[in-house]
Design a binder for these strands. Structure first.
Lengths: 229, 229
DNA sequence: ACAAAAGTGTTTTTTTTACACCCATGA
DNA sequence: TCATGGGTGTAAAAAAAACACTTTTGT
């Protein structure tokens, strides 16, 4: 017999339009209500065991929804973490023993990343999540298990793979080129030249002009674009 | 209880220096000796369940060795396959029922790719492998489970990720630039211009000249290079 | 009229591609 | 001396980077 616990962990990056920052969605896990010291307090990625007959991509969607109520998020599998000791550090045992039959058993986890517009996805804690919040990627605290490593490698993956499919989730259906540029700048943490950025993005042929313009802005209104298809 | 069988599958690509082709390593699985029809005959990737307390990267090495005797292969994890029905097609049940307690149980598999010099890695079947062979990537037959899909996506990954770490396994410690070029041409299935290839590969700074030259060739002997570090 | 972001072209630099001949060796 | 693959530079084309001023709107 060599069956193993398998979980999914979701690294949801949020593009914060107000603070112009990239954030990551973290949950605070419910602790044992009888534990007065709150020693089981844990900040973690939304993640949980997958079910016996569930597709892994489906599991990622379900788990994300069950803990945060986020729905319709495009999730991309990027890496599986399988160190046999990854959940056995002492900091994690307190929580595990309330939620798992055998808290010492290994868990292999499949990592998923996504990138969403923060304002469109208001998470709300549920199930074993006591709280859910967006945390600046520069202020990520010590997390449960190996979740700091999972966040790091998720960010790395995101920056290398930033493309049409991920970015098209992030903007309104109709958006300005400046919004698109800002998105790229925040995610990649790099500045681009306005003219060059426009030339390149238009030449890629993934977006098209609409006839509409911004309304109610106290400057020249920008033309709105949309993604093709 | 939601523990699941987890396996690794190794997609080992072999660079065939004689035929100048890219091949993939497949095993023929042992069938039930009492089954006269040989109906359990299966060609598959080398892969097997991981052990209870084993790191997944270690598992990939162990499994590859246990089935093919290949050793010291640099394996890279690239994707996890988790369709709950992936091992339940009828073509696979015959074999499974001889090797698994419950042949209907799902198995999640973690895919690993590698690229090796065929001549350096002479596989030899062992454990439940009846035979091991290198098969031209254009002649891959119908495989067990979803292994055709795993091979396809492994090839895709390889072509996108071909880099120093993968290629340095493929050549002798000291190699000529023509050997390096040929390797790239075969793996990527593309021709390159000799002068441009040399310029680019030298400018990347990953290789260095040695003072040695080829010996015993009936043409101008080529300078030998080695990878840095 | 002013502030604020939109919009737009040209030049320079860098990178990539195309291309052809002489060289050193073994047979 | 011939056959074989080794080795080299330059020009053209394409892609990327640098750069500054005018326009339209709301206040």
């Amino acid at each position: 017999m060599s069956k193993i616990n398998v979980s999914v962990d979701c690294v949801i990056f949020g593009f914060d339009n107000e603070e112009k920052k990239l954030k990551v969605l973290l949950i605070k896990k419910k602790i044992n209500p009888y534990d007065k010291k709150n020693s089981g307090d844990q900040i973690a990625l939304p993640g949980d065991l997958i079910r016996l007959e569930e597709d892994i991509d489906e599991a990622a969607k379900r788990v994300l929804f069950s803990l945060t109520k986020l729905n319709n998020v495009f999730l991309r599998q990027y890496k599986t973490f399988g160190d046999p000791k990854r959940v056995q550090s002492s900091k994690d045992q307190e929580w595990l023993k309330n939620f798992r039959q055998d808290p010492n058993e290994r868990v292999i986890t499949i990592g998923y990343v996504s990138l969403v517009r923060m304002e469109d996805y208001i998470p709300s804690p549920s199930y074993f999540a006591d709280d859910v919040k967006w945390v600046d990627i520069l202020d990520v605290p010590l997390l449960a298990f190996d979740h700091n490593e999972i966040v790091e490698s998720g960010l790395h993956f995101l920056r290398n793979e930033l493309d049409h499919k991920l970015t098209s989730e992030l903007l309104p259906i109709k958006f300005t080129l400046s919004q698109l540029q800002e998105l790229h700048e925040i995610v990649l943490d790099q500045k681009f030249d306005k003219r060059n950025f426009r030339k390149k993005v238009i030449s890629k042929g993934k977006i098209k002009e609409t006839n509409e313009k911004q309304k109610g802005v106290s400057h020249k209104p920008a033309r709105l674009y949309s993604f093709k298809n």
